[in-house]
Simulated assay, not measured.
Amino acid sequence: MAANGTDAAQPTVDEVLLDGVYDNLETIGYTGPLLNDDTLSTAIQQGLSSTLYKELVLQLCASLQQLCSLECRVSSPQVPEDLEAFQLELRSLLREMDCHHKSLMESVDVLGDYHKRLLLVDYLLSELMAARLVGQDEDMDTGQSGSIPASLSAILRVYEIKQPPANVTVKQIFDKIIGSTREAVSKAPPAHLLPSLLGQSLSAEQWDTLDKINISLTSEYEVRRKMLLTRCDVTVQSFRWSDRIKGKEEEFSRVYQSHRQQLSGSAPVSLSRVLAAKPDLLTVEKTNSAAVRENTQCSVNKVLIGKVPDRGGRPRETRPPPQMPAFKTRTTDSQDQRKGGGARGRGGSKGRVQGSWSQGKKGGAKGGSWQQDKGSHGNQQQGGGKQKQYFS
């Protein structure tokens, strides 16, 4: 009986989560009506039918979108038909934030029961406080963003620690923060926090190397993001050519730009992600898995394309190129014709030379032939001004 009494006195997981949600609401500076335990529990039980619960979830999502530069947006459901779209947007936001709660990621109905609704608020509150811890608050951006005083000030605000006096050392401040962190972790339910994926401490040189790797990868992925955004702009620009857009150019631009401005070309990934990484990051889901297809499937995927005419283009069906005619050796007649044509072209010069020698032989007087050639040569020299002879 004593054992049964002891077991009955132990709080349940939901009761521990509810106390943590109540404390976290006070930590983030919430001043609404949900600071009452009964009101908070009743709102979580009612779910989306409760205006207070719905406004709390929307406010937490909006704050995370602003601090973490998230691309997914969660819109407020105006009519009951929008509840399904609201849950899809909520799941997309959780997926972008790498939510480690399987009960929220694997189920289509994110807000199906009391435990899921309570777990969702607890997760959003934890992520919001973590975002402020890493220095993404707007107050830090206007001040010394990224500096040690601004980061420490943000951590102290999260743990509701008063600003230390000037004589307190940095070590004392960190000891106070570590003690508050351990106290907050001890209040979490069992197996609520997964172990860190890093598993060991890094030296200063390793952190410096990791920072250089992060800068290089951020620069590369920034180029890829800008390329995808450029493709998106070109694709949307091609829609303007449709006749149905005529007279609606301003409305078309307004609707597109309202979404386009939310897409950033830079990849906001910092070294704090290394410390926050969990073992579930090693699990990579396929793009065609059921969990992924729940967010990517649409009515267009169910349209089957009918038979289309065959346009060919297969390599095995193409005709071979025309062949060159076979090589043939030249015949003897063609060679003789070429020689004969050349002889006719040089017939005048050849005839004179042969004629001089033949006359010398036939006439029997060699001198006559030489005199004839000499006279002929003299006549050519005298008449050289009239016509040049390049061949004798």
Rank of each mutant, 00 (worst) to 15 (best):
R346P: 01
L17Y: 01
K362V: 09
P321N: 11
L35M: 08
V292C: 12
A150E: 08
S41W: 06
M227P: 01
N288Q: 13
E294Q: 11
L198E: 03
L34G: 00
L18F: 09
V303S: 03
S369M: 12
S258V: 05
E55S: 12
Y123H: 03
F391G: 07
P315W: 10
V274Q: 07
R157Q: 13
Y22D: 03
G143S: 15
R244D: 14
P164M: 00
K54D: 03
Y30V: 02
G360K: 06
T329S: 14
A62W: 07
L118C: 07
D336F: 05
L197D: 05
G112A: 09
G384S: 15
I178M: 07
L104K: 02
C68M: 12
K187R: 13
K246L: 12
S76R: 08
Q144W: 11
P80E: 07
G385R: 06
A131Y: 03
H377C: 09
D333L: 05
H192P: 02
A8P: 00
E106T: 03
Q381F: 10
A290E: 15
S356F: 14
G47E: 11
S270K: 05
H377N: 13
R346C: 07
V158N: 10
L17D: 04
I28F: 00
Q389I: 01
S266H: 12
R73C: 08
N36Q: 14
M1F: 04
H377S: 14
N288M: 10
Q172H: 08
K388N: 12
C99K: 03
E138D: 12
P322K: 06
V284S: 13
A184W: 03
V108K: 03
D122E: 11
Q261D: 14
T331I: 09
P195D: 01
N214Y: 01
G5P: 00
T318D: 12
V255I: 13
Q65N: 12
K102A: 03
I44D: 04
S151Y: 11
H101D: 04
E317C: 09
K248G: 02
M324R: 15
V353G: 11
